[in-house]
C-alpha cells in the first residue's frame, strides 16, 4: 500500500497532533511545536514504512519535538535564573473564576518531571489508557503505572504544601 501523502496526513491527523502537543507542552507554544512536528513529518514521511500505526509514529515525533522543547526551556530558564532575568511576571489582567486554584495546580504540574506530567495529563485529562500510552511510547505498561503513581503522589505533596503555606 502506498504511504499517505503529507496533505492526507495533515488533513486527518492535525487535530490529534495539536491536541497531544498542547497537552504535553501547553497551549502557548502548541502552534509552533505542532508546526515543528509537521515539518519533521514532511521530511520523513517518505521513509514511513507502516511498521507502526501512523498515530503511533506521529505521537513519537510529537513526543521528541516537545521533549527537545522542554529541555531547551529548562536550560533557558536556568540561564535566566543565573543572570537574575527570570521572565517578566505576567499580571493577572482580569478576574478569572477559580484562577487562584488553577494557578496553584498549574505551578504544581509544572514542577513535575516531564514524563510524569505527560503521563498524568494524557491519562487523567485526555482519558488515554496506560496501555495505549505505553504502546505509543514503546515502553512497558508498568512504566506508565509507575509514572502515574509518582506523579499523583508528588502532585498531592505539592498541593498540600501550597495549602499549608497559605
Amino acid at each position: 500500500m502506498a504511504p499517505p501523502t503529507f496533505a492526507e496526513v495533515y488533513a486527518e491527523h492535525f487535530d490529534y497532533v495539536y491536541r497531544v502537543v498542547a497537552r504535553l507542552a501547553g497551549r502557548a507554544s502548541a502552534e509552533d511545536l505542532t508546526q515543528e512536528v509537521f515539518l519533521v513529518v514532511h521530511r520523513r514521511l517518505a521513509g514511513f514504512e507502516g511498521r507502526a500505526k501512523l498515530t503511533t509514529w506521529l505521537f513519537q515525533i510529537a513526543w521528541n519535538v516537545v521533549g527537545s522543547h522542554q529541555r531547551r526551556e529548562r536550560v533557558r530558564r536556568g540561564l535566566l535564573a543565573v543572570f537574575g532575568r527570570a521572565p517578566e511576571p505576567a499580571l493577572p489582567p482580569c478576574p478569572l473564576e477559580r484562577a487562584e486554584e488553577a494557578a496553584r495546580l498549574a505551578r504544581a504540574l509544572a514542577a513535575l518531571p516531564w514524563p510524569q506530567r505527560a503521563a498524568l495529563l494524557l491519562c487523567e485529562v485526555e482519558g488515554w489508557s496506560a496501555a495505549l500510552l505505553a504502546e505509543r511510547l514503546d515502553v512497558p505498561v508498568n512504566t506508565i503505572y509507575t509514572r502515574l503513581h509518582h506523579a499523583r503522589r508528588r502532585l498531592a505533596e505539592l498541593l498540600g504544601q501550597g495549602e499549608e503555606a497559605t
Partner: peptide
Amino acid sequence: MKLAEVVEEAAPP
C-alpha cells in the same frame, strides 16, 4: 477539584 476541570483546553483554536 478535578484535574480536567482546570487544565487548559487542548483543542486547536
